[in-house]
Design a binder for these strands. Structure first.
Length: 217
DNA sequence: CCAGACGTTGTT
DNA sequence: GTCTGG
DNA sequence: CCAGACGTTGTT
DNA sequence: GTCTGG
């Protein structure tokens, strides 16, 4: 579901939005990043809410081997099960914010998803907003280097997202500024699941060749 | 009992 | 480290 | 945890 | 019914 996001914002913009300072940030703005390449992105951690630093998309539990992500998809964590699953259970209280401009989702036009329409989704009237993340500090057994790794928490789709993500009907937990603190403070996961939290989302279509889809050759 | 998994919903 | 499928 | 076995030593 | 292999 939430595998591609837009991080095309400046560090300055993020510092202002979060009232935080970049500390250990290895970051390049991108219109579209792919979770499956396990990119490093900007994050704000609960332990230091005034710092913006770098973490890897793809959570690695403390016990994970180096190739863990090759076999296990931890890009998203379902809010309903995160607290019981091995990979997430010790990280559900490690809360982080992942700043994004938007994320992308594809609407299937047929049962097999042969034809899809692409949409870009964001919180309405926002410049930036946050995806809700849980994180784990992972130590590379080879080098001893520590790395923050995270997963984006997903929930049942709201009305708009059900129309777009029309097969799986899931969406990432989207936090406007007024919910940042609540998330970082470690309030119960359930407080943030739909419909307990229903972000005011808006979508625009980004399909590459709308004309061809409407009038196939 | 122990080997093997540990996850979500794409291939854009 | 801990769970689970066989 | 549960499906499947649960037995001995011939071909006389 | 109880054990055991997977």
């Amino acid at each position: 579901m939430c595998y591609r996001v837009n991080t095309n914002f400046s560090i300055k913009q993020a510092e202002k939005y979060y009232d935080a300072k970049e500390t250990d940030l290895d970051y390049q703005p991108e219109d579209e990043i792919n979770g499956f390449s396990h990119p490093k992105t900007a994050v704000i951690l609960d332990i230091a809410p005034t710092e913006i630093l770098t973490a890897q998309w793809g959570l690695m539990p403390i016990w994970a081997k180096e190739d863990f992500l090759k076999k296990t998809n931890t890009l998203n964590a379902k809010i309903e099960t995160a607290e019981t699953l091995n990979s997430y259970k010790n990280s559900t209280k490690n809360r982080c914010l992942i700043p994004v401009k938007s994320f992308y989702e594809w609407q299937w036009q047929d049962a097999k998803g042969k034809n899809k329409r692409k949409f870009e989704i964001a919180i309405k009237d926002s410049t930036l907003f946050s995806l809700a993340g849980i994180y784990s500090l992972w130590e590379n057994p080879e080098t001893g280097k520590e790395l923050y790794t995270y997963s984006i928490v997903t929930t049942k789709a709201n009305e708009l997202m059900s129309k777009i993500h029309n097969i799986k009907k899931r969406m990432p937990i989207c936090l406007a500024q007024n919910n940042h603190k609540k998330w970082l403070e470690g309030n119960p996961l359930e407080d943030f699941s739909f419909p307990n939290l229903n972000p005011n989302l808006a979508a625009v279509e980004k399909s590459e060749n709308l004309f061809a889809e409407l009038f196939p050759l």
